[in-house]
């Protein structure tokens, strides 16, 4: 049913730390690796070695340059996947009930056996989180690795989405945002977590931690750098490696 649940018992989602993400695309690759043989896969890859490769990815890593007067430019890597919105417009527009939001954990899924491939849900999503599978004629999206996080044959501490377990920088966290004591709720509360595109009134579950403000860094003046180099040289000269 495409009626949204009044309330979900859990609000499972991701917290992505933009201060830590280095834009390596490992999460996107491992997402594809896991999900192409997952419950809503395969994820198509057309002409992978041709001039114009195309295919479905549930997770894409954008990057942006931010410019502010009187500040050095900054680069922000920006992984984007489904935010499992509380007020998910992609679900309510679906005419078939293929798109759904689960009442137990809030995960938004597409049932590939019911989807007619009308694509309306992808028009309704402001975030570009849904991609159309031309081979299967159905819509696809991030499953929050629902077939991994509940898989009891996997050791408990590894029951996290593939993108989370693979991130070499530790920029991605998974947990229950409905529980104020969960890892993600605490990180969100302590770190000025952001909703993407609040004007769209979708109430995203996934949260993003912004890059650290410049003021919080020690200013790396030339003087500072010179003294660092001097210290290092001194260490070697005296062969004293303490501290």
């Amino acid at each position: 049913m495409t009626c949204l649940p009044e309330k979900t018992d859990k609000k499972l989602g991701l917290l992505i730390d933009l201060n830590i993400c280095v834009g390596c695309h490992a999460c996107a690759v491992n997402c594809k690796e896991w999900n192409t043989s997952g419950i809503t896969g395969p994820m198509e890859d057309l002409k992978p070695y041709g001039d114009d490769p195309s295919g479905v990815w549930y997770n894409r890593i954008h990057s942006y340059e931010f410019k502010k007067p009187n500040e050095a430019d900054r680069t922000v890597y920006f992984p984007k996947s489904c935010l499992h919105c509380e007020d998910a417009p992609c679900v309510t527009v679906c005419p078939t009930g293929a798109s759904l939001k689960r009442s137990e954990d809030g995960i938004v899924l597409v049932n590939p056996d019911v989807c007619i491939g009308c694509k309306l849900c992808s028009w309704a999503c402001p975030y570009g989180a849904r991609e159309y599978d031309t081979s299967g004629g159905v819509m696809q999206k991030c499953t929050l690795c629902v077939d991994k996080i509940y898989d009891e044959t996997i050791p408990e501490d590894r029951r996290v989405p593939s993108c989370v377990s693979t991130c070499p920088a530790g920029a991605r966290h998974f947990g229950d945002f409905a529980d104020p004591n969960s890892n993600v709720s605490k990180l969100a509360a302590e770190n000025d977590a952001r909703d993407l595109f609040p004007e769209m009134e979708t109430k995203p579950i996934n949260q993003y931690l912004p890059p650290k403000k410049r003021e919080q860094h020690k200013s790396r003046s030339l003087e500072h750098k010179v003294s660092n180099v001097k210290d290092a040289l001194l260490k070697w000269a005296t062969l004293d490696f303490t501290g």
């Binding site: 340059e65 410019k67 502010k68 900054r74 922000v76 890059p211």
Partner: peptide
């Protein structure tokens, strides 16, 4: 859209 309105102007 990026949730980052306080970091200046963003370009891809």
């Amino acid at each position: 859209a990026l949730g980052l309105t306080d970091f200046g102007k963003a370009t891809p």
